[in-house]
């Protein structure tokens, strides 16, 4: 799993690629939490994530809660079918703001 962070229209975008599982979720968690407290909205790009497990979902939930506390908005963008399925199974698809594209995400969080 890899990740890249960029700034798009005032939002911090972290794009993951590869599987987020028990082995890689600690890195994903670290990357996500590094954006908390930066004062900008957060977009998590899951286009390249074909597989995410409960530990990956837990990292997303933790990031969302921390971001809320520090007053940052957060959205998931370009969520792959596989990742969306897991979010639905966990009934978290209504907890997260989920947008089709990064541009939609920028609008949603600004």
């Amino acid at each position: 799993m890899e990740h890249a962070i960029s700034d798009v229209g005032g939002a911090l975008v972290v794009a993951f690629s590869g599987d987020i599982d028990l082995q890689t979720s600690p890195d994903a968690r670290k990357a996500l939490l590094s954006l908390v407290g930066k004062g900008q909205p957060i977009l998590v790009d899951l286009a390249g994530v074909g597989y995410i497990d409960s530990s990956g979902v837990a990292s997303l939930v933790e990031c969302l809660q921390s971001a809320k506390k520090s007053g940052q908005k957060m959205a998931l963008v370009s969520v792959s079918d596989g990742a969306l399925r897991v979010l639905q199974l966990a009934r978290l698809d209504r907890v997260f703001v989920i947008c089709a594209t990064i541009d939609d995400g920028v609008v949603a969080v600004s």
Binding site: S54, V57, A58, S59, V61, V86, L89, A90, V95
Partner: peptide
Amino acid sequence: DLNDLRPGGLGTHLIREV
């Protein structure tokens, strides 16, 4: 309980769900 969104225990739920 899914009303409790804290991480952890979610894995077991996912297994039973699918």
